[in-house]
Write a protein that binds this DNA or RNA. Structure first.
Lengths: 215, 215
DNA sequence: GAATTTCTTGACCAAATCGTCAATTTTTCT
DNA sequence: AGAAAAATTGACGATTTGGTCAAGAAATTC
């Protein structure tokens, strides 16, 4: 009973409890923040939602704002994952299809995180640091260059790459941020996987015919 | 001095002060709600913003929620104005261009109202009455039928009209709701009229080539 | 197994928040 | 002008909120 499994279980002994509880807190917090925003969320609610006494939360995070900014920091990393599909080598048709698919998939499976960011953006991104804003800017600029390259090579129709990206971003993001509106539009109680697939098909079709040169 | 102008100036004497103050309050409130949401907005802030003592606000509105729902009621009327451009008689090319133009124009000139709604939607539309939801649904359904007609007549490519509308809505709405993100993307301090014009051009181009049959 | 560090938690506090009220002023009506 | 109605407002109160603290319980180290 002893010995055999002692090695893996003692992997990070000095930080195990801390890591587990911080994760609990952040998970409960992102859900509440995403629905009710920073001001609308009470620390007591977070406590109740993660099953820890409120005072314990303040042992791990000094303020409510600290929880919020920690979330921004962590989620910013996954924010631009889908953009990785947009590369210069790839054919626009493939790259754009893959991007839309990945973004919609993320929207479907990470509704909470998507909404958390939408909430922050609606408020003007006041909690974002200058460095974080610059980071977002650079990521975008990089991919804008890819699209510019496609235009130069005649692979897609001449188009403003910035507004083109906004179109893609806005459309795919919508399904996470405003799922209820989408559901009302589609006259359903909630969105199903089928709806996401139909969305993907429609978006890809319009976007591709919209930017590929006439064959 | 008397007589000549007495008729028009006494048009609604019993409601003049009330109307003026209610308007003041609602104007200040929509601005605050749009930025900070329902919970994030304090009634004292509204009071300060409209230059009325807080107690006076409670003379006109019984609760904070009453202010909020009054705003929803009033703004819902202008919500779907742009959709009027989508009619069966009109050519899709014209109708869609006009819609995008009108929607972007509204986004630019009514940032506050757009954001107010976005905020409400992000929260799942909990303050919307069932009747209001149904209203939105019916408005949409009407226009979806128009698009279905276009498809049937071969005027546009076969496409899911619901997701097509979501694409249009999401894209144009984005410029109001997430103006800061758009500004960061475009590497500007704030959006100018020129940016909106470029957006319109790009969106119309992609959407039209995306749904019109190959000529 | 004792010492030390980390973690837990109920009780508490000052500030803020929504909403009330009663006294007063202004406007309207006759 | 005088009465009645509508509007204004400072002061106040109950409750909620973010955050603190100190004392004790677990876990870790030596």
């Amino acid at each position: 009973m002893a010995g055999a499994k002692s090695a893996p279980s003692r992997k990070a002994p000095e930080e195990r409890i801390r890591a587990r509880n911080e994760a609990k807190i952040l998970k409960a917090a992102v859900e509440l923040f995403s629905r009710k925003g920073f001001d609308g969320t009470r620390t007591a609610e977070i406590a109740e939602a993660c099953g820890l006494p409120k005072a314990n939360i303040y042992y791990y995070f000094s303020t409510k704002e600290a929880i919020y900014t920690t979330l921004i920091e962590r989620l910013l990393q996954g924010w631009d994952k889908a953009l990785e599909h947009i590369t210069a080598e790839r054919d626009p048709r493939e790259a754009l299809s893959a991007y839309v698919a990945a973004k919609l998939d993320y929207s479907r499976r990470h509704v909470v995180e998507s909404r958390f960011f939408a909430n922050e953006m609606l408020r003007g991104g006041g909690f974002l640091s200058r460095a974080q804003k610059r980071h977002m800017q650079e990521i975008t600029r990089e991919r804008v260059r890819v699209v510019e390259g496609w235009v130069r090579d005649g692979k897609i129709v001449p188009i403003d790459p910035n507004h083109f990206f906004i179109m893609l971003w806005a459309t795919t993001q919508f399904y996470a941020d405003f799922a209820e509106v989408a559901a009302v539009t589609l006259e359903k109680a909630r969105l199903s996987l089928t709806d996401y697939e139909a969305a993907q098909k429609t978006i890809v079709k319009v976007i591709l015919s919209g930017c590929l040169p006439a064959s």
